[in-house]
Amino acid sequence: MTYVVTESCIKCKYTDCVDVCPVDCFREGPNFLVIDPDECIDCTLCEPECPAGAIFRDDDLPEGQEEYEEINARLAKVWPAIIQKKPAPEDADAWLEVKDKRGLLEE
């Protein structure tokens, strides 16, 4: 089992989840975070910390978000680790309720 960051994180990129991760499994891209499935220990700490509600167990992904399991695994191999909370983008709150953001993901 592992946790997966889904579409709601795109353009929001809050990093509250990073602060509670005991194994530093988060990776940071330009406008999205991912979880390295090889590092995640399924501790459950990150899920309730996400203001965007973007983190789910891999076997609990919402309908239409299944591709994010592969996206997390692929991007975790190339994006650098993030181990400290950072300020969210200035416009993060404006993107919080926006749907269908997949096309905005900067890889």
Rank of each mutant, 00 (worst) to 15 (best):
V5Q: 04
V5W: 04
S8E: 15
C9T: 09
K11D: 15
K13E: 15
K13P: 04
Y14K: 10
T15F: 06
C17F: 10
D19E: 15
D19P: 00
C21K: 07
C21E: 08
C21G: 14
V23N: 12
C25R: 07
C25W: 05
F26P: 03
R27L: 07
R27Q: 13
E28H: 06
E28I: 14
P30F: 10
F32A: 04
L33P: 04
I35F: 04
I35C: 08
D36E: 09
D36L: 08
D36I: 06
D38M: 12
E39Y: 13
C40I: 10
I41C: 13
D42L: 11
D42R: 10
D42A: 14
T44G: 05
T44Q: 14
L45E: 05
C50K: 01
P51T: 11
A52Q: 08
A52E: 04
G53I: 08
I55G: 01
I55E: 01
F56T: 12
F56C: 07
R57S: 15
D58Y: 10
D59H: 14
D59L: 08
D59N: 15
D60F: 13
P62L: 10
P62C: 03
G64A: 09
Q65R: 12
E66H: 05
E67S: 13
E69L: 14
E69P: 00
E70V: 05
E70D: 15
N72L: 01
A73N: 03
R74V: 08
L75M: 03
K77W: 03
V78Y: 03
V78L: 04
W79Q: 03
W79F: 01
P80D: 04
I83A: 08
Q84V: 11
K86H: 02
K86M: 02
A88D: 02
A88M: 09
P89T: 00
P89I: 00
E90D: 13
D91R: 06
D91A: 09
A92F: 01
D93W: 05
W95P: 00
L96V: 05
V98G: 07
D100P: 02
D100E: 14
R102C: 10
G103A: 13
G103D: 12
L104F: 11
L105F: 05
E106W: 07
E106P: 01
E107L: 11
E107K: 08
E107W: 01
E107Q: 09
E107P: 03
